[in-house]
Design a protein around this nucleic acid. Sequence first.
DNA 1: ACCTGAACACCGTTCAAGT
DNA 2: ACCTGAACACCGTTCAAGT
Lengths: 225, 225
Amino acid sequence: MATKTMKGCPVKRLVKKAYHHGDLRNALVEGAVDLMEEGQSFDFSLRDLASRVGVSAPALYSHFADKGALMVAVAIAGFQKLRAALEPTVKSGKDLSTQFLDMGQAYVQFGCENPALYDLMFASPELPPQRFVYPELKEAGDYTRGVLLDLLMRMQDEGLMRRGDVAMDGFTVWAHVHGLASLVITGRVECAQEGSIEAVPMPVKDAVRMSLSSLLDGFKAPAKA
Amino acid sequence: MATKTMKGCPVKRLVKKAYHHGDLRNALVEGAVDLMEEGQSFDFSLRDLASRVGVSAPALYSHFADKGALMVAVAIAGFQKLRAALEPTVKSGKDLSTQFLDMGQAYVQFGCENPALYDLMFASPELPPQRFVYPELKEAGDYTRGVLLDLLMRMQDEGLMRRGDVAMDGFTVWAHVHGLASLVITGRVECAQEGSIEAVPMPVKDAVRMSLSSLLDGFKAPAKA
DNA sequence: ACCTGAACACCGTTCAAGT
DNA sequence: ACCTGAACACCGTTCAAGT
């Protein structure tokens, strides 16, 4: 081959060395995140990932026990991305009710922009049931959930929210926004023309704000004038 | 074989005829529902289904265009099951707020008892994006959703719920209970010892009632004494 | 019209072998 | 220690052929 020699050192090998020695583990995780962001599919094959990274498929098993272990690492990266997306909304200095709605909107928006990653983190059975074996995953999730719990405690302190079990109310809020994100992402609520929800003709983000307002005010309250 | 002749008619063929002529289509759908109810997996293979029904795998393609079309038929059956599970709760004669909580609890319970079927109906990407091609699916979903919307309208009439856009509020309630069901089913909220939720030490059904009460009363309201 | 057996292009994973 | 090529047991689907 023409690339075989160059100053006595094969170019091909120089290029390849980058993947051989630079840690393949991170390259695989980053490549997987990229594939999930690009792909219209919620899944990807290890063979696709391997060829994109420039390595054979079984090479993965030098760094991960199986596909599930890889997916756990990807999900951890996802939790960091999500936290980065949520944090600005609770540091805007706006009033806390607005921060609450902003955070919910940012959460659903993250899901819409990273549907496969979101599904992996919060819904897919691809994260194995034995995933509690990976404590880093639970830590990453708890760290992200902390953004919400901190806000709820501040709302309690300012009298914007009833006193009570913050963990329970956090679970309620989480379930609520997760339900919104899940239904939109999986297409159970169809988006008619751009950004509007079936039978609820308004952009997704407005629907999220309105829905979360119901959670603050309660259905029993009279509708606002 | 010993079964070859019996009164001049092979027994084997007598038994097989049932599947050959009795419509295979329904047998496949029912078999698929059974597989989803039994299986710990959210998915099943067409080969498993075919062998259970006693037929070769490609036989399926005489009745369905592809696996997606089969899954649509299964989901339709699921919506009928769900409606049957919800309807008693809104015909109990109890006060409407109780009916509201009962229905939400029955919804989540249906998901917990039929996780694979629920996932197919409300979350899985296995229902193809072009599923609006199947109008029966939308009809089945709308028919089931009607149970909720009817209740919300009755609540409005009795002054138990603010006036407003019933479709929008129905969407909010649906997203809320779907979020609860999804997180529990997919194990994102771990069940510590029997029936209790992580960091929310109460049975699932109690958590659902408490969470939905928040939606009725609103977070701003003072907690009940 | 309905079903079968063989085949195709995939998939995750294993394993002996190379460096 | 890290990676490869060949192979294994799957998968959904196609297709010619049988009845």
